[in-house]
Design a binder for these strands. Structure first.
Length: 450
RNA sequence: UCCUCAAUAGCUCAUUUGGUAGAGCAUCUGACUGUUAAUCAGAAGGUAGCUGGUUCGAAUCCAGCUUGAGGAGCCA
């Protein structure tokens, strides 16, 4: 019979294992009375208590142990009476006590400075478990809905959004004259991708429904709690989906993901609720049950201007400031907002125009606290309109780079829609973390790559 | 990138207008066989973010830099 169990397995199979001799391997979280060890092995948020046979002073907090002992129940909790203990090496105490693993409260900034050790904290490992399950379930859900997962290039020469700063990829010597990209590795200017959407649009022509799930890169010098230079995005592209249907789909998709986390990560959510002092579980349940509020851009502008005359001009983007007004003064319900039909001039070239010719079939889903999580649209199918949009919006950009994209429209008027979901923003919302840098293992932001 | 505020022991913070650097926790030593962020007694621990200036004297005032927090802009 098997002897070694991880702690997750022990809690799941405790009825079977009680009064049996088992082996666990894990590290010491707490040590009390020279007698009681609390062990965690990373498989679950829960620790298991180990009771020593004799008092022992020579066990350091943080050390990794192999413990052989008998599992039993005491005061309705399970614990292990140890019979044999093996230490895996030694702890460098000076290093340990100067690190974030010291048995003390550390603020998030301190944790971030030692991001390579954060995984051992209850907080960060909980966030990572939620992050993991979300990725798994995204794949699972989309597979069930007959999507194909495609991998779009990370190094590219197109700039989907047409705005914002991009990271250049080059092997040219910076000190020498930098401008002759013909001599560069790809024979032209190359950059890290900002989105896989255009490639996804080409893929649906042969695969019907596809999604990408990978890192994207923005070189914007934005120092906020909602931005990263490297972040993960899920981008869906669906053939034969009209605007209304894509909105419906995106709402269902988000609700499914929230439901899954409520079901499988409730222990983690309870801990995060305590840590962040936010009633996350109630908030998530509410979002799962209630219909998202759907409102057109025009109406949003009207409503904001009702609060204060001429606060916002038609045609400007709905910034963080106005999002806050919407949640705090207008809707007050902490339910996501779906804002649709944005002005053409503030949205990218590939979005389908409405009949008024000044708005496009685009939508954003805005969440309380974290802002935009989803942005999507029905795509323009007219070759000429895309060409004109691109020329208007990207005056100094080379049309040749997206010629292949334009040519997709030569295969017919195939209507399709898609959206992108900011993965970290979703995790940020679900976990209640204030800073996006705390929901990704190794955050990259201006001035930080360590 | 812009605006405002901040940086003191390993951690969280005190130090009221410039005059010898202080506590709790963590650490170390000792006590404790039902503790659960254990408790009790004692010890040790600091060139006050960095660089420069003003002053008899700077953690404290001034300038620059670095880093962080909040807000703005940009966005997912």
């Amino acid at each position: 019979m098997k002897k070694y169990y991880n702690i997750k397995e022990i809690f799941i199979n405790k009825k079977k294992l009680i009064n049996k001799n088992i082996i666990i391997k894990g590290w010491v979280k707490y040590f009390r009375n020279n007698l009681f060890l609390e062990i965690n092995d990373g498989t679950t948020i829960k620790n298991i208590q180990v009771v020593l046979k004799k008092k022992n002073k020579n066990i350091d907090i943080g050390i990794t142990l192999k413990i052989y002992g008998k599992l039993r129940e005491y005061n309705k909790k399970i614990e292990i009476i140890s019979l044999y203990i093996k230490k895996y090496g030694k702890i460098d105490k000076e290093y340990f006590n100067n690190s974030i693993l010291q048995n003390k409260f550390h603020n998030l900034y301190k944790l971030r400075q030692q991001s390579y050790l954060r995984f051992r904290t209850k907080l960060f490992s909980s966030i990572m478990r939620i992050r993991h399950l979300l990725s798994i379930k995204i794949h699972k859900y989309l597979n069930k809905k007959n999507f194909y997962y495609i991998n779009t290039p990370i190094i590219t020469n197109n700039d989907t959004e047409g705005i914002g700063e991009i990271f250049n990829v080059t092997i040219l010597n910076i000190k020498k004259k930098y401008n002759n990209y013909k001599d560069d590795f790809f024979g032209c200017k190359a950059n890290l991708t900002v989105s896989g959407q255009l490639e996804a649009e080409s893929a649906i022509l042969g695969l019907n429904k596809v999604y990408t799930f990978g890192p994207v890169f923005r070189a914007e010098n934005s120092n906020t709690n909602k931005h990263l230079s490297e972040f993960w995005m899920v981008e869906l592209e669906m053939m034969f989906y009209k605007f209304k249907n894509i909105i419906k789909f995106s709402e269902k998709f988000i609700k499914y993901l929230i439901k899954v986390i409520l079901k499988y990560n409730i222990e983690e959510l309870k801990y995060l609720e305590k840590y962040n002092k936010i009633k996350i579980i109630k908030l998530l349940k509410n979002i799962y049950i209630k219909k998202f509020i759907k409102i057109s851009y025009n109406l949003v502008i009207k409503k904001i201007n009702k609060i204060k005359k001429n606060l916002i001009l038609w045609g400007s983007d709905i910034s963080t400031k106005y999002e806050k007004i919407l949640f705090k003064k207008i809707f007050k319900k902490n339910i996501p907002l779906i804002i649709y039909n944005y002005p053409k001039k503030i949205k990218p070239f590939y979005m389908k125009s409405n009949k008024d010719n000044i708005t496009v079939k685009s939508f954003d889903i805005i969440f309380p606290n974290v802002g935009e999580i989803i942005g999507g649209s029905e795509r323009e199918i007219s070759y000429i309109k895309i060409l004109n949009n691109f020329k208007k919006k990207n005056k100094n950009k080379n049309i040749n780079n997206i010629k292949w994209y334009l040519n997709l429209r030569k295969l017919g008027k195939i209507y399709h829609s898609g959206f992108g979901l900011g993965f970290e923003r979703l995790i940020q919302f679900i976990t209640g973390m204030k800073n996006i840098r705390d929901v990704i293992p190794f955050p990259r932001y201006p001035g930080n790559i360590n």
